[in-house]
Amino acid sequence: MLQTTLNNGHSMPMLGLGVSGMYGADAVRAIRSALTIGYRLIDTAAMYDNEAAVGRAVRESGIGRAEIFVTTKVKDTYQGYDSTIRAFEESLNRINCGYIDLYLLHWPSRSHRREMWRAMETLHQQGRIRSIGVCNYPIPLLEEFQDYADIVPAVNQVEFSPYLYSEDLLRYCQGQGIQLQAYSPLTQGKRLDDPRLIATAIKYGKTPAQIMLRWILHHGVSAIPKSNNVRRLRENLDIFDFDLLPEDLARLDGFHEGLRIFDDPMNYI
């Protein structure tokens, strides 16, 4: 599995599994299947209500804990310093796998960003979290860190795909040593029938989803596609045996149309 080294020296797989919308025994089965196939990054969140299932799947997988990278996130309703500390304690207990590899602020708070990040730094400095980061932070909110942060976020997880090619944000994060990570990298299927994408997939003998994921990785962005279907899990992982030609990369860059599945983070400024 292709790895990236975060700005604090820890390694993270570039491709992982997002698990929103998976619950209970079904979630455990899907995650265990993914781990068996070769996934080593599992991305959950308190608001997904499946942290316990993630922890159970990891414990039952038979794979050493150190080989699996577990991400979770602060629930939006936990605002402020003390609430963020409490949110972490609750997530850690639910996952019950010893430690959390990456802890993220799920959405930017309109009024408590500084104290929430200070809580994240405290947890990191105490050695209770290996890496800390954010989700859905546009450039203006990332620039704020220069005013109050002692630790630069290791990861910024955002909506990102060929149809939402946030090039300025990517370049900014690269310049600051922040790893950009893509959620909804396959546009939740909304553009998989694009004839231009299908033509590129035929050219490489791959599927449209594989072309999109490969494009993302070519740009140095991590991706966490979601699926509980074993065939699609295998398909999403089978993207390391080819490279996109420069002209095809440029063509996919041109697919950008500002497509968002979720809310625009700029609304939180």
Rank of each mutant, 00 (worst) to 15 (best):
W117N: 02
Y268T: 13
S222T: 10
L6D: 00
L170T: 08
R32C: 04
D248W: 15
P208H: 10
G18E: 05
Y23M: 13
K75V: 10
G127W: 01
E90I: 13
I31K: 00
L17K: 00
A25C: 07
Q179D: 02
W215T: 07
H218K: 06
D264K: 04
Y78Q: 01
S131F: 09
P185T: 12
D193Q: 14
L259V: 09
V158D: 13
D76W: 00
G258M: 10
R191G: 08
P138I: 08
D26P: 07
L244H: 11
E51Q: 12
F69S: 11
T77H: 11
Q3Y: 12
V221I: 11
D243S: 15
V230E: 15
F69I: 08
I42R: 02
V58I: 07
E257P: 12
G24K: 04
T187K: 05
T77D: 05
L192C: 08
K206C: 14
Y39Q: 03
F160T: 12
C135E: 06
S20V: 03
I132F: 05
H256R: 06
L245S: 14
F242V: 03
L141V: 00
H218N: 02
L233H: 10
L252W: 01
L197Q: 09
Y204C: 12
I269H: 05
S61M: 00
R251Q: 13
E247V: 03
R118P: 02
H112V: 12
F88N: 00
E51H: 12
G18Y: 08
Q179V: 02
R234G: 04
V134M: 03
T200Y: 10
G24H: 12
A52G: 15
H124A: 14
R130M: 03
P153R: 09
R260C: 14
A250R: 14
F262H: 14
I151N: 10
Y268Q: 07
E90C: 04
I100R: 04
Y268N: 08
V70R: 07
Q210N: 13
Y268M: 14
Y172E: 09
I63W: 02
Q79L: 10
V230M: 13
M116R: 03
S109K: 10
G38H: 09
W107H: 09
W215N: 03
D194G: 08
T5N: 02
L237F: 07
S166L: 11
I261P: 08
M14V: 02
G16L: 01
D248Y: 15
R110I: 11
I239W: 12
A25M: 07
R118C: 06
T71G: 11
P140E: 06
A209K: 02
F160H: 09
G220K: 09
G16V: 14
K190A: 11
F240S: 15
K75T: 08
G18T: 12
F88I: 01
K203H: 14
E60W: 06
F69Q: 00
Q188Y: 07
Y148A: 13
P225T: 09
L6G: 00
R29M: 04
L192Q: 14
N96P: 02
I216V: 12
N7D: 04
D248T: 15
R231C: 04
L180I: 05
D168K: 15
N229F: 05
L245R: 14
E90V: 08
W117H: 00
N96I: 13
V221D: 01
A66P: 01
G127T: 03
E143G: 06
R191K: 15
Y23G: 05
D43A: 07
L102G: 07
I31R: 05
E235C: 10
I37E: 02
Y165V: 08
A87F: 04
G205N: 09
E90L: 09
